[in-house]
Computed example of a mutant assay.
Amino acid sequence: MEFKDYYKILAIDEKANASVIKASYRKLARKYHPDVSKEENAEAQFKEVGEAYAVLKDPEKRAEYDLLRAQGTYRSAGGSYQPPPDWQSSHAGNRTHSQRTDENFSDFFDSIFGAHGSDFRQAEDFQRSTNRRGRDLHYKIALFLEEAFVGCQRQIALRVSEPDQNGSIKQRDKTLNVKIPAGVTEGQHIRLTGQGELGIGGGKAGDLLLEIEFAPHPYFTVDGMNILLTLPVTCWEAALGSTVEVPTLRGKVKLKIPQAANSGNKLRIKGKGLISKGGEISGDQIVTLQVSLPKERSSEAKALYRQLAECESHFNPRQAFER
């Protein structure tokens, strides 16, 4: 049986304190974890690191181990090791055959301390504690309203942190093609399971959370599920009433402008707003009229405006100011 130098296995000095021991164990456990390591014999080295930590983290076990290590009896002929004939560990009284777990600890450990089941469970619990879930990533994605309405596929680029084969954290660029379902709304989060950062020590990968934003639109704005549009109309369309074409997310529709309409009047087009996923909720399109005049007018048009002013001379839109 070979003597195991636990200090050498953890790559620490024999005078290392508890924090140094713990830090070295965490680093090596990440390096050799079979789920992520590319090292040769990673599984065997991972078990050795766990065994060394189980001894050196425990002050009593460490003291017993240091005593045996100082005796140098492991340097016997052939390099084989046997504890002194009168050796009795303070932990040996807890030994039971049913607690024996060769997959976790070596014969060397067993010969000194016995297969102490609680020690195995403590070491396994600590190993599980290093199996940390990867960090969730958050990414804002700006969509045009038309893309949010019908759904789309977009490519996004991320920079993620991942442990390399030595346990060091490195940055890596990652590209994903993501499918955006129809009916997303601003501020909504889409969770892509397992597309976040890798876990440590075999832990699950984190998720990617996409937060939906709406890119500025040339003429639409959003209010909840409603689409807002400011619609320019001519003075004669507003005065006489008219039917005009209006853009919506579903294409152009006919909208009737009532007679004597004014700037600021709001007209509602039912069901032409945003639609929730599944179609249970549908917003409207709210159209706000804005009466516009041509910047350049012909002499004939000016004459008609003068004639209109004479015909409507009784109308004073500022009458309220004169009270």
Results as ranks from 00 to 15, higher is better:
Met1Ala: 05
Phe3Gln: 03
Asp5Ala: 13
Ile9Ser: 03
Ile12Leu: 06
Ala18Val: 09
Lys27Gly: 04
Arg30Met: 13
Ser37Ile: 03
Glu39Gly: 01
Glu39Val: 02
Phe46Lys: 00
Lys47Gln: 15
Glu48Arg: 10
Ala52Met: 09
Val55Arg: 07
Pro59Glu: 05
Glu60Lys: 15
Lys61Thr: 01
Gly72Trp: 02
Ser76His: 11
Tyr81Cys: 00
Tyr81Val: 02
Gln82Asp: 04
Pro84Gln: 12
Trp87Ser: 10
Arg95Phe: 13
Arg100Tyr: 14
Thr101Ser: 10
Asp102His: 15
Ser106Thr: 12
Phe108Gln: 07
Asp110Leu: 13
Gly117Tyr: 10
Asp119Glu: 11
Ala123Pro: 01
Asp125Glu: 13
Thr130Pro: 01
Thr130Arg: 01
Arg132Thr: 12
Ala142Gln: 09
Phe144Ile: 06
Phe144Asp: 15
Leu145Tyr: 00
Ala148Met: 10
Phe149Leu: 08
Ala157Pro: 00
Ser161Arg: 15
Pro163Ser: 08
Gly167Met: 06
Gly167Ile: 06
Gly167Ala: 02
Ser168Val: 08
Gln171Asp: 11
Thr175Gly: 00
Lys179Ile: 12
Pro181Glu: 15
Gly187Val: 10
Arg191Ala: 05
Leu192Ile: 10
Gly194Trp: 07
Gly196Arg: 02
Gly199Lys: 14
Ile200Phe: 13
Lys204Gly: 09
Lys204Leu: 15
Ala205Ile: 00
Gly206Ile: 09
Glu211Asn: 14
Glu211Arg: 15
Ile212Phe: 05
Phe220Ser: 12
Met225Gly: 05
Asn226Glu: 11
Leu228Gly: 04
Thr230Lys: 14
Cys235Leu: 05
Glu237Ser: 09
Ala238Ile: 01
Leu240Met: 12
Leu240Ala: 08
Val253Gly: 05
Ile257Arg: 01
Ser263Tyr: 00
Ile269Val: 14
Gly271Asp: 10
Gly271Trp: 07
Lys272Asp: 08
Ile275Ser: 11
Ile275Thr: 12
Ile281Gln: 12
Ile281Lys: 06
Thr288Gly: 07
Leu289Tyr: 00
Leu293Glu: 01
Tyr305Val: 03
Arg306Ser: 08
Arg306Val: 02
Ala309Leu: 08
Glu312Asn: 09
Ser313Ile: 12
Ser313Lys: 13
Asn316Leu: 08
Arg318Gln: 11
Ala320Met: 09
